[in-house]
Every structure is written in C-alpha cells, then in structure tokens.
Amino acid sequence: MSTTTFFASPRFLSRVMWADAASCAASGALQLLFTESLARLTGLPAALLGGTGVFLLGYAALAAWMASRATPPRGLIGLVVFGNLGWALGCIALLACGAFPVSAWGVAWVLAQAACVVVLAELQWTGLRRTRSGRAVTA
C-alpha cells in the first residue's frame, strides 16, 4: 500500500480519531488518578490538572464516538483540528506566561501534549483533505 493510498483509506480518519481518543483517555486518566503527585512533580496546579483531566476524558468519549461511525463526521473532525491546534497554543501560552512554577517535568508534560495534538491535527487535516466528499482520493 502506497503512502497516498494509506492516507486516502476510508478508515484513515477513524484510525486517527481512535488514536486521539486513546491519547486523551490516557492523559485524562493519569491526570485524575495522580492529580496530587503530578502537581508536585510538574509544578502545575492540581485544579488545572484535574479540570483538564475531566475535559480530556469527556473529549475522549466524543472522539471515540466519531471514530466508531461508519462515516466519520467530517464537520466535527474539522472542528477537532482547530481544537487540537488551540490546545497546543494553550499549552505554549501556559508555559510562556510564567504564572506557575513549572518544573522541567512540567515543561516536558505540557510540551508532550502540545506535540501530540499538533501531530493529530495534521493527520486529521490530511485525512479530511484526502477523503473529500467521503470518498477516497487516490491522487
């Protein structure tokens, strides 16, 4: 299977959304199960970690729902692309503002989330472009 065919596969968007759901579920669960430990380790406020953990679990459920559709909801996935880019910008802004005494582990945690969502946004955007009108494009 060529790279073009891989990205144009009708299942590509679903697979990317499953990856998005899994990464958000894992991050959200970690942030909720180990809120206090992560707060001490990262220097991030426990309330921020807990609140974003709840959000990530809710988003993971929505992403899993999108992934499970026979035809992924392209309009919603388009919003997800912008949401993922917004999350990455929020991560950078969080570090840049200097409002919290973020440790090196905290910087790594936040930058890992930013990098993950940028990669997911790019894959989602690629899938949307390559599967215009719900049909695979083989060009």
Score class of each variant (00 low, 15 high):
56 L>I: 00
69 R>Q: 15
84 N>K: 14
98 G>V: 04
35 T>Y: 09
58 G>K: 10
31 Q>M: 15
56 L>D: 04
95 L>G: 04
74 R>C: 03
127 G>Q: 09
130 R>T: 03
127 G>E: 02
87 W>Q: 13
56 L>P: 00
120 L>G: 00
107 V>S: 08
139 A>F: 08
128 L>G: 03
21 A>N: 06
32 L>G: 05
127 G>T: 05
119 V>A: 15
70 A>Q: 05
106 G>S: 07
2 S>Y: 00
1 M>V: 12
33 L>T: 11
71 T>H: 10
137 V>P: 00
101 P>Q: 02
72 P>G: 11
46 A>Q: 11
35 T>P: 14
71 T>K: 14
69 R>P: 04
46 A>Y: 06
27 S>P: 01
41 L>T: 06
68 S>T: 05
58 G>T: 06
35 T>L: 13
133 S>G: 08
24 C>F: 06
42 T>R: 13
38 L>K: 01
24 C>D: 14
55 F>W: 12
93 A>I: 01
132 R>C: 01
137 V>F: 01
77 I>C: 02
105 W>N: 15
50 G>K: 12
88 A>L: 02
115 A>W: 05
69 R>V: 01
78 G>N: 09
120 L>V: 02
92 I>K: 09
9 S>Y: 02
25 A>D: 02
118 V>F: 07
87 W>E: 10
31 Q>L: 10
37 S>R: 14
84 N>M: 11
127 G>M: 04
